[in-house]
Design a binder for these strands. Structure first.
Lengths: 194, 194
DNA sequence: TATCTAATTAGTTATATATCTAATTAGATA
DNA sequence: TATCTAATTAGATATATAACTAATTAGATA
């Protein structure tokens, strides 16, 4: 996550009214007037705050007739909130070391994957590892959740040490776990290689 | 964590200069002039920013001769950064439901703990559970780290299901885990009952 | 005590922003 | 099309704040 996005996120969250909006939406979606009512503020004020929150991507909206409902995306919120605890680690990814061409990527996949699709070994170099992880994780369906057993079984179709692969998917934010079920993260949370 | 502390935290972090300071201090402590030098800013500007960061508690300082070194407290940073993802949950704790007198606490401990110190069962009511968890966690030494095995063994001196207790200690921020070792959190991160 | 170094405080300026009222827009429905 | 509702935009005001220079303070040491 780059610096100015992080600044925007924390500026957005660093306001009592907006924190109260987040707290409300954690309970479920609401429309603007309802938020204004609950907070004792005028609708334009709510529009103003929702815009800032929407700009970060943590809130989206759906229209139903004349009413627009606002939803909190808790996964994104969590991801962005935790980003500051990893600040500086990302620097690597903006280095030219991390620029990967299509050709290079093909080459890396070819080097580490057998013709019948099995992973020969987990690359020790971070960049290569991320490319491998991204390649295999695409088998999961966005929005669908999986049991740990399913995840393990899938990994074992291409690599013996399923625990490592599963752990790395979580660590690099390809997937996340909630209530012992696994789900793909939106691509924008993935490392920026592929 | 209460609202205004959260606002102050995110306001503090929501500034590019201060994020860069956090990134620097994650590598290790630095003194003011060094930070000013690395960021291309004047010392008073650094004082200004460090004050805001110190006010949140995420930074502390130690003097060595004429030079003051600034340190980042990563545990606190993590705790505060993640607080927004739990916003609203805390409300319970300010309800009168959550006011616990000394007498009540003694009563609860007596109800759930046998005369020889064993936990009869884990209370299902959150308030009571937190009191029990706080009681037993005090056996750990602040600042010391423990292996998972040690933690399990200690729990088994008073309760069979060690996994549950360990998990709840983490969940309620009595302890945290890093590199598979366990450590007590500062009391201010504990639930506010006891 | 005088002097040195690093940090802080005071005061200034330019910019950003939270909130309001009034006016306007976007869609739905009679 | 006329009208209704919810949301947004425009414009105003008050407050907050990031950066600077100049002056001061806090501790160390000659």
């Amino acid at each position: 996550m780059q610096l100015d996005k992080m600044v925007a996120f924390h500026k957005a969250v660093g306001d009592p009214t907006r924190l109260r909006i987040i707290a409300l939406l954690r309970q479920g979606p609401l429309h603007g007037q309802a938020i204004a009512g609950k907070l004792g503020l005028r609708p334009p004020t709510i529009t103003h705050h929702l815009k800032k929150l929407k700009d970060t991507g943590m809130i989206y909206s759906r229209r139903d007739k004349n009413t627009i409902y606002f939803y909190l995306d808790e996964k994104k919120l969590t991801f962005m909130a935790e980003a500051v605890t990893r600040i500086g680690d990302e620097k690597v990814k903006t280095d030219k070391e991390w620029q990967v061409t299509e050709k290079e990527e093909r080459q890396i996949l070819q080097n580490f994957i057998t013709v019948d699709g099995k992973l020969k070994q987990m690359p020790s170099q971070l960049k290569k590892r991320v490319i491998i992880l991204a390649y295999y994780v695409k088998a999961f369906q966005p929005g669908k959740t999986y049991e740990e057993k399913e995840v393990n079984e899938y990994i074992q179709t291409f690599f013996e040490d399923y625990a490592t692969v599963r752990r790395e998917w979580i660590m690099h934010h390809f997937m996340y776990r909630e209530n012992n079920r696994y789900e793909l993260n939106p691509q924008e949370m993935w490392p920026v290689v592929v």
